[in-house]
Structure formats: structure tokens, C-alpha cells
Design a protein around this nucleic acid. Structure first.
Lengths: 210, 210
DNA sequence: TGTCATGGATAGTATCAGTATCCATAAGCG
DNA sequence: CGCTTATGGATACTGATACTATCCATGACA
């Protein structure tokens, strides 16, 4: 397959494919002559994955590169691969809330983690986001939104068990890793849009139609 | 309060505040002379909200503006305000998947909506994202990830009921609207980081620590 | 044999979210 | 009163991101 056909197969413009090649997101095709390379099914699949991550999950190109490198390495532990996916999904936030609010939120989160018996590293990227979000809600006078944290956490555990169940059946380690990473990232998008749909439905019933 | 004090109170640089004023995110202060204005507590609150939406929830400035305008209008129906918040959270995706995959995904989603008795407009922004995500999963050979759609949907309904419960106690319509919008948007960030934390924990237990 | 596509390199563009600079005026201090 | 600093308002500039466009020498293929 030549670059033009790859472009047609995936609906990605040729200059964009060249850009991904330059950035190292997509491995080079096999050179059959100094200015001719051939691409295969693997390139089609990889390109589709790249586009899904960028367009659907809005993962920045630099992070996509990291994730793919991690997927391609068959020595990197699964747990570390998941960590990379998590970092790709976590905003690099700066401080937003007051110190008191942050302290209170930190305590609230720590208690939650202990109550649920979760094993979480203190540097987990999502931890800071969660603390900041709760602190922001508090600061904005919406502390009541985090009252249901335990109930949320319980529902979220169920999700995660489902994620694991969906993924554990994969036969090889490579396929498992790919499933986990795609599940982590696209699962985020899936869950988010499901939630919006449920909200839309309830909102329409409650307050809807003018 | 002058602009410098507003800046200190919120930890937002003066030029950034000026930028938000220019963009119409923040209402102008009360002019006490041609080059002197005074800002109040409302400006502090508004500025904190703006920063939470931009930094934590990664909502683009233009959408923040829309959301705030909608919040400030006391004639716009609540359901429409929620719609704006939803649009702010939905990526403006372009097509990613093959036509067959999209068709299958559309059918799957429609059946889900019918089974659950949801009321969803065909133009709901999250609908297209959900369809695209499922189609992408299918195309990437991860169709199994969407097998648990019903279970996800059920858990998500529970969330949404909690959201509604958390919010319904608000005394005035304005406060209700603010809660709903903040809950919709920051709730997304909250849920997402909770999910990542739960995943991290399970991943650490299953595959963790090298 | 001539037209078109290709690999590779380099340069340009659009958008976004601020930053920086300028100016005339005003506030606050000694 | 004078002097430094801050302010409102306008305009210009910056840095990051994700592409697009152009160029060139060569190669495919009709």
C-alpha cells in the first residue's frame, strides 16, 4: 500500500500522515526504493488508533506518541502503561483554590481512599485533579456536590470491575495491554457521553421542552 | 477593590483579568473615574468559576463565555442551559470510523436508549460522540468494550440521580441553575478522576509494582 | 516519454490563550 | 505639591499546538 492508498483507507490527508511520520506516531513504511515505501494493515490500524485518540479523546499528539511507544514496548509493565494513559487524560492543572479549601479536600479524599481500601500512590495524577475539583466546588459554594463522593466511588468501582472484566479475556499480553489502554482512554469518552445522555434525558423530563 | 487586589485575591495575573474583561467573560467593574474601576465579591466568585472551568475542566474560553451568558440570563430555560454545558463538554469530532461500524454503533445506541426509556433528541451532542466512540472501539477490534453498555448505562443513571439529588435542594432558581451547570461540568472532572483512581488502585493490585 | 505520485525536508498557517507595551490619567504617599 | 506607582483601554506580540503547503529529485506507470 502506498501513502495515497493509506490516506484513502483511513480518510486522513497525506500531509497529515507525513506529519505523524515526522512526529514518530506512525512507523515508517518499508522502503522499496529511495522514494517509495509500502505500508500495510498495521499502519491502517495504527492510524485509526491515532485518530481516535486525537479526535475523540482529545489526547495531545505528544501524549499519543508516549502512549504508542509504551504500547510498542513489550517490556514496560502493564501498570506503567496504564499510568501513561492516565497522565494523558489528566489536565496539567495549576492551583485554583484557597489553601483551606485544598486542605479540607485533601482530607476528604484521603478518608475516602482509606474507607474504600484503595491502593493509590500519592503522586497519582488523578489525585491532584480530584482534590482540586473538590476544593473548587467548595470554593464556588457547591460543597454539596461532593457529599455523594462515597456513592460516586462505589459506582465507579463497578465500572472499573466491568472494565477489567471486559479486558481480562484477551488472550495475549499485547492484546491485553492494547485493550487496557484503549479501554482507559476511549472508555473515558464513552462514559462521559453516556453520562451526558442520561443527564439530557432526566433534564428533559424534569425541566424540559421550555 | 481595584484590579490589582482582585488579582491578588484570585491569583490570576492582571493582564489575564484584562483579557477576560476584553473577551466578555468578566463584567466590567464600576467606573469611579475615567481610569479607575472598582470590583466586588461577585467578580472574585466569577473569576474563580472561570478559572475552574478553564483549568480543571479544560473548557475553551469561547464556551466559558457562552455558559456564563446563559447563566446570567434569567429567562433561558434550565434545560437549554444544560444543553450549553453539554456542548462545552463535547468534542467537535469529525468522522473517524467506517460506515458499517457507524451504522452498527448507531443501532446499538438506539436500542440502548429505547431499552432504558431515555428521552434524547437526535441532535444531542453527546449522541454523536457516543456513536463514534463505539464505532471506533469496534473498528479497533475492541468491540467487547461496549458489551457492557447496559451495565454502564445503569451505573450512569445512578450518578445522574445523585447529581439531581445534590442539586434539587437549592432554594432559588438562579442557585439551582448555577449548581446544575457547575455540577455538570466539574462533575465530569470529578467522576473522571475518581475513575482513574479506582483504575489505578485495581491495576496496582492486579498487575502492579513491577 | 511524459505525467503524476512519492519521500524527505523546510517553511508557512490558523487558532488559542494569554502577555507585553503604550498612553494619558489618577491614586496614594511624603 | 510633586513623584512614583497603578489603572483602564487599546493594540501588538508571543508560544504552543496541529496541521498545511511548497519544493525537489526521483520513481511508478500508462
Amino acid at each position: 500500500m502506498r501513502i495515497g492508498e493509506l490516506s484513502k483507507a483511513t480518510d486522513v490527508p497525506v500531509p497529515t500522515i507525513k506529519y505523524y511520520l515526522r512526529e514518530g506516531l506512525l512507523p515508517a513504511g518499508e522502503l522499496t526504493s529511495p522514494n517509495q515505501a509500502s505500508y500495510g494493515e498495521a499502519h491502517v490500524r495504527r492510524l485509526r488508533l491515532i485518530r481516535a485518540l486525537i479526535e475523540l479523546a482529545e489526547v495531545p499528539v505528544a501524549q499519543v506518541k508516549e502512549i504508542l511507544e509504551s504500547l510498542d514496548s513489550d517490556t514496560e509493565p502493564l501498570h506503567e502503561q496504564i499510568g501513561r494513559a492516565h497522565r494523558a487524560l489528566t489536565p496539567t492543572r495549576r492551583l485554583t483554590a484557597t489553601d483551606e479549601a485544598r486542605a479540607a479536600a485533601t482530607a476528604q479524599v484521603n478518608e475516602l481512599i482509606e474507607r474504600r481500601g484503595w491502593t493509590v500512590e500519592p503522586e497519582a495524577p488523578a489525585l491532584a485533579t480530584l482534590v482540586d475539583t473538590i476544593a473548587a466546588m467548595q470554593t464556588l459554594g457547591q460543597a454539596h456536590l461532593s457529599e455523594y463522593l462515597d456513592a460516586y466511588a462505589e459506582a465507579v468501582e463497578k465500572f472499573t470491575e466491568l472494565d477489567i472484566a471486559a479486558v481480562s479475556a484477551r488472550p495475549t499480553r499485547d492484546q491485553l495491554a492494547e485493550s487496557v489502554v484503549i479501554g482507559t482512554i476511549l472508555g473515558e469518552t464513552l462514559l462521559s457521553s453516556l453520562r451526558l445522555l442520561a443527564q439530557e434525558s432526566i433534564s428533559a423530563k424534569r425541566w424540559g421542552r421550555g
